[in-house]
Design a protein around this nucleic acid. Structure first.
Length: 573
RNA sequence: UGGAAGGUGGUCUAAUGGUAGGACCAUGGACUUUGACUCCAUUAGUGCAGGUUCGAGUCCUGCCCUUCCAACCA
């Protein structure tokens, strides 16, 4: 979208998504000619974990804002802490951003690309008397920092000479000092009400192998120092981050203002904060997600119950549905908790149009149609998608013995139950109407099979198919069915806000029924060709996709999301 | 109790000082060879108290509530 279109949208109000406050800022910057009309954003993950749906919001925002304003977006890894970062994570992050549908083209960067420059900027600060080497221990620095209500005290090393600071900093780099023994600090204001301004640490000594620079460095810059300058060096115009960094903005600007990075060439980045995404019935912090993985509550980062991009992908969510979700939730500065039902709505809406319909019986009940000729098989025509005439149709086999869903039969039904009951009738989808004649039970009284008769005149699509019965069931021919495993997923946490009670361990809220594995499912034979990632609607049940665990001998499906189920709702009441 | 940012139906999000709207959820109904989809309808909101104004969600004052900040993490 061009600037004119954006503005036009604002005026006419016919934009599908209302412009958010960041777009308003950008539009104003464009109007006043700030940054020479450039819009350049960046997505700056730290490669210390897998991306989740909250990152998707940021990715869609950063790439979306740039795209909407004729701008570009960098992918930049914020890799300044080698003790926590790994290549595994950078690879997964690249995969996830690409999968979501975004392209950083040739603009893949790492904060570590700038280590040498950042070092020289630090030397610059020292020479200007704006940074000093401090010998205080971590604990002492903390003690000197003061509190929220009391100012801090200046470090006794604060007034070292430029020469001594230069010498010490050079020797820090050279590896002459132990980890943690000294740091480089910015000289700002120990009495500032903003703790971030109380002579913040900008370099620490840390002997850890970096995933890119390996053992070249034993000092590493801190986020507060590396981030604004990385933004500046990439000529970023709008540096969008989450709310918790708002207090860091004065520091961000301090480095931009006090380092000579050639602002005439690169411009001056502006930090803008927005509220991170919270979703009901899940957790979003990397620490907690890692805990779920490491303590075995889930099978891995890509467990289909996880809110990670890889989990959602394996679950069967599409990139388009996630992008749609991110559009719909909007962008603002107030803390919020989005109902996960909105995410579910987005995938249902997309799949309703795109997913082929098939029949699958999850909990089979054998039905024998006594008046259907033994050995006969009819291949019946079944519509692939009533929402899409282009989807065509397929043939499904009908025979004397079929399976229906156990819950589609009740011996003693409640009122409003319009499925199969003793002596009652039901339409088999795309086939015949059958009538229940006899219920067969085992010694424990469990229903093991049904004997029915069919109405030959009720064949679906035939000239005499017009007779109406209240209920319709899905089914599969017993002879032709493909056995499969189907995994049903529910919310990972029972409570809407599993992190709400800080006194309680969030793992105590895990939903014990979040995964239900059904291993005796029966699928219609057309599914024999299904491959990993294929998505279907199992009629009357939900949307499912083939899991990577699936093999030709043992197919495995994940339930992406159920269909809306009015009957289940009625029963709950 | 220092500083910063916020408070619009259950949830998310709109509204040059001028009819508080949309989406999700919920509820009721129509339709249905998916109790799906679709369609229709309904409930329900500007944190509180003042002030300015012909008129305040919007401006002013005071109060209340929420979130964030005291890593050599990001």
């Amino acid at each position: 979208m061009t600037e004119a279109e954006v503005l036009n949208n604002t005026e006419t109000g016919d934009s599908k998504t209302p412009v958010n406050f960041i777009q308003t800022i950008i539009s104003e910057d464009l109007r006043t000619g700030k940054n020479g009309g450039r819009v350049h954003t960046r997505f700056p993950p730290e490669p210390n974990g897998y991306l989740h749906i909250g990152h998707a919001k940021s990715i869609c925002l950063n790439f979306g804002l740039a795209a909407a304003n004729n701008g570009i977006t960098n992918l930049r890894f914020d890799d300044t802490n080698p003790s926590k970062e790994e290549v595994e994570y950078v690879e997964s992050i690249k995969t996830d951003v690409r999968w979501l549908g975004f392209d950083w083209e040739d603009r893949l960067f790492y904060a570590s690309d700038y280590f040498e420059l950042l070092y020289s900027f630090a030397v610059q600060l020292i020479k200007a008397g704006k940074a000093f080497v401090c010998d205080l221990s971590a604990q002492e620095i903390k003690d000197y920092r003061g509190t929220l209500t009391e100012p801090g005290k200046e470090s006794p090393y604060r007034n070292r000479s430029v020469e001594e600071n230069l010498d010490l900093f050079e020797r820090m780099r050279a590896g002459e000092f132990e980890d943690g023994s000294r740091v480089l600090r910015a000289k700002i204001n120990m009495a500032s009400p903003n703790l971030n301004m109380r002579d913040p640490v900008i370099y620490r000594i840390l002997r850890a192998t970096h995933h890119r620079t390996v053992d070249k460095w034993c000092i590493y810059p801190m986020y507060d120092y590396a981030h604004p300058l990385s933004d500046a060096l990439e000529a970023i115009t709008h540096s969008v981050c989450t709310l918790e960094f708002a207090d860091h903005r004065p520091l961000y600007e301090w480095f931009i203002d006090n380092v000579d990075y050639d602002s005439a060439k690169y411009g001056r980045p502006q930090q803008i904060e927005f509220a991170r995404l919270n979703l009901t019935h899940t957790v979003m912090s990397k620490r907690k997600l890692r805990q779920l993985v490491e303590e075995g509550y889930v099978s891995g980062w890509d467990d289909p119950r996880m809110p990670t991009i890889s989990g959602l992908r394996r679950r069967g969510y599409t990139p388009a549905s996630i992008r749609d979700f991110c559009e719909r939730i909007g962008v603002a500065k107030r803390d919020s908790m989005v109902d996960i039902a909105l995410l579910e709505h987005c995938i249902r809406e997309e799949l309703n149009f795109k997913a082929p319909r098939v029949m699958a019986v999850l909990q089979p009940l054998k039905v024998i149609i006594d008046n259907y000729p033994e050995g006969q098989v009819e291949w019946l025509e079944a519509e692939n998608n009533p929402e899409d005439p282009e989807a065509g149709s397929r043939k499904i086999p009908f025979s004397r013995e079929i399976y229906i869903e156990q819950e589609d039969f009740m011996e003693n039904p409640p009122k409003k139950f319009f499925r199969l009951v003793p002596g009652g009738e039901i339409r088999l989808k795309s086939a015949y109407i059958i009538k229940c004649e006899e219920v067969v039970k085992d010694e424990q009284g469990n229903i093991i099979e049904l004997h029915c008769t069919y109405d030959p005149d009720s064949k679906s699509g035939g000239p005499t198919a017009g007779r109406k019965v209240k209920g319709t069931s899905h089914w599969v021919s017993a002879l032709h069915a493909i056995p499969a495993e189907v995994r049903l997923y529910d919310h990972l946490f029972l409570q809407e806000d599993p992190e709400g009670d800080e006194t309680e361990d969030f793992t105590s809220n895990i939903n014990p029924g979040s995964l239900e594995s059904l291993t005796a499912c029966m699928l219609e034979p057309s599914l024999v060709d299904a491959v990993t990632g294929n998505r279907y609607q199992f009629m009357r049940q939900g949307y499912f996709c083939v899991d990577p665990d699936s093999t030709p001998d043992k197919m495995v499906f994940n339930r992406i999301v159920s269909l809306r189920d009015t009957w289940a709702k009625m029963q709950k009441k």
